[in-house]
Design a protein around this nucleic acid. Structure first.
Length: 212
DNA sequence: CTCCCGATAT
DNA sequence: ATATCAGGAG
């Protein structure tokens, strides 16, 4: 095992000690709702998403009903999450594709998910990991990107490269929980503006303690 | 690569 | 005022 892999394992161990059951912060009842919530989460706090989705799913409880909604109405409901025109278009495109091409059921394969409107690799990995328990890859979002660079796992900002390197560094059985734990830590401690290194139990394993 | 975009913390 | 927030499409 390389020195980096050994340190990564220690960091993962500590992450799992701090976050024993790292769960998805986006409230949802099924794979469809999780996919929609994750589309909404782009450049937006999950807190904000969790305010909007209950309203959206109360009015449109099923993929079929959401597929029949108007662009304007969806825009109005989700407006506060930002990028609301693109997100409304993607959500409607996603809902309609699920109804028309997949019999109303969200597929559980990466290749199929990525074809769907608004679903990229990050969202697909979230849905597969959280809704289906399938470790198709490592979720690389803004938090995982930032923490992976700070912790010295990688030295670049490319999500695809980062995912590939993390998949080699972390055992597959830990991929799903590792992603969630990194995201929780990124939200609560190692945030972008003012990382709280003083209260971070990973500090002794982190090469960037106290650096900006 | 650029564009999409409102809410919030600093 | 500005950076940042569970990204994806063109």
């Amino acid at each position: 095992m390389t020195k980096l892999a050994a340190r990564a394992q220690k960091i993962a161990d500590e992450l799992f000690r701090i976050y024993p059951q790292p769960e998805c912060a986006l409230t949802h009842e099924d794979a469809f709702q999780l996919a929609v919530a994750t589309i909404l989460s782009a450049q937006c706090t999950d807190e904000r998403v969790n305010i909007v989705t209950p309203v959206l799913f109360k009015k449109y409880p099923t993929p079929k009903k959401l597929a029949a909604a108007t662009q304007e109405d969806v825009e109005e409901i989700i407006k506060s999450t930002g990028f609301f025109r693109n997100k409304a278009k993607n959500i409607l495109g996603f809902a309609r594709a699920i109804v028309n091409d997949y019999g109303g059921v969200v597929p559980n394969e990466l290749d199929e998910l990525i074809k769907l409107p608004g679903i990229g690799r990050k969202t697909a990995n979230v849905v597969l990991g959280t809704a289906f328990g399938i470790a198709s890859g490592v979720v690389v979002d803004t938090h995982v990107t930032r923490l992976s660079n700070r912790m010295g796992f990688v030295d670049n900002e490319d999500a695809v490269k980062i995912e590939r390197e993390l998949m080699l560094l972390i055992p597959q059985e830990r991929w799903i929980n590792f992603s969630h734990a990194m995201i929780w830590h990124g939200r609560r401690v190692c945030n972008a503006r003012k990382p709280n290194c003083a209260e971070c139990t990973l500090a002794k394993l982190c090469p960037k303690v106290g650096v900006e």
